[in-house]
């Protein structure tokens, strides 16, 4: 049984498929890392160190922005991710509608 799945090769976060405990060594897509926190099954783990203000990529799309630096192996959730859904949707729609076609 694998512990972490990377859904698309562009993703900088993986998904825990089993509960992971702090200090545990986990592998994903050829990279080994040490879990920085307890990470419950279904939750995200940083596959690389993500600087503050960077895009969080899952399903090969931007799902949010890091609100602080996130270390490789750290739990990725509301405490370190900003939800920018509104901004992404509005900016796209504004640009799309402004182009005459």
């Amino acid at each position: 049984m694998k512990k972490v799945i990377q859904i698309e090769s562009e993703d900088n976060v993986g998904v825990a498929v089993q509960d992971i405990f702090v200090g545990e060594r986990v592998g994903c897509s050829g990279t080994e890392m040490i879990a920085q926190n307890d990470i419950p099954a279904g939750h995200k783990i940083a596959l690389v160190t993500i600087p503050q203000g960077e895009r969080i990529i899952k399903y090969a799309v931007t799902i949010g922005k890091s609100s602080r630096e996130i270390l490789q192996g750290e739990h990725v959730h509301s405490h370190n991710v900003e939800d920018i859904t509104n901004q992404l949707c509005n900016e796209y729609e504004r640009q799309f509608r402004s182009v005459k076609g």
Binding site: V15, A16, P40, A41, G42, H43, K44, I56, K58, Y59, V61, T62, I63, G64, V76, H77, S78, V81, D83, I84, T85, L88
Partner: peptide, 8 residues
């Protein structure tokens, strides 16, 4: 369950 944002 681990979902952080609406896009996700």
């Amino acid at each position: 369950g681990g979902i952080t944002t609406l896009v996700e």
